[in-house]
Computed example of a mutant assay.
Amino acid sequence: MAPMTTTEIAIGDLTDPRILRLLEDHLADMHAESPPESVHALDVSALQDAAVTFWALSDGDAVLGCVALKQLDESHGELKSMRTDAAARGRGLGRLLLDHVLAEARARGYRRVSLETGTQDFFAPARTLYASAGFAETGPFADYVLDPYSVFMTLDLDA
């Protein structure tokens, strides 16, 4: 009989080689899909900022995904670095990560969570996931500007 594994979401160790590989894959995909000026993904040093909390999703020894929440102000958070390993897609792990970060945003008392994602077909599954959770398209927020390669979405947590 195979050993039981447990899917867990916990604060991620940004020195763990498994997490670094996942983040490298994430940045590589972002740069492959968008021009450099339209890539807003955070690198490891930016994920270490005090305003950012980073979580990893693991199943046994495998790191299958990650997500981060950046505090923009006392009532507004930004979803960042949402990634599911390519080999683990289609298992509902993205929904687990999204539910986790939204629960954390509510626990912090945020009134809304916003995100930026791409307009290209590559990002369609992400846009669909976010819309299914109640995110609606909005204009730019924080330091973002209008960009043909960006979609901005916000979820009102008070609704």
Rank of each mutant, 00 (worst) to 15 (best):
H40I: 04
V67C: 03
A88H: 13
R108A: 12
L96G: 07
A62Y: 00
S75Y: 00
C66G: 13
V101F: 10
D61H: 14
D43S: 15
V63W: 00
A87V: 02
S75R: 04
L72R: 06
D99K: 14
G60E: 07
V63D: 02
S58T: 12
A62P: 00
L102H: 00
S58P: 03
L79G: 01
L64T: 05
G60T: 01
D99P: 00
A41S: 14
A86S: 12
A50R: 07
A46W: 06
L57K: 13
D61L: 14
G77L: 02
A51H: 03
F54H: 14
T53L: 07
A68P: 08
D73Q: 04
A51P: 01
D59N: 15
W55I: 04
L69H: 01
R95G: 11
C66F: 09
D85M: 11
F54E: 10
Q48H: 14
G90N: 11
T84H: 07
A56E: 13
R91G: 02
S81F: 14
L64C: 06
V101P: 02
V52T: 05
A105R: 03
E74L: 04
A41G: 12
H100V: 06
T53W: 08
A41Q: 15
Q48C: 12
R89P: 06
A103Q: 15
E74S: 01
F54A: 14
A88I: 11
V44W: 00
R83K: 12
F54S: 12
A107T: 05
A46F: 05
S81V: 11
V67S: 06
L97W: 09
G77M: 03
A105K: 04
H100M: 14
L97H: 06
A62I: 02
L93S: 03
L79C: 09
L47D: 05
L72C: 11
D61T: 11
G94D: 09
R106E: 14
D43G: 14
V63I: 13
L97C: 10
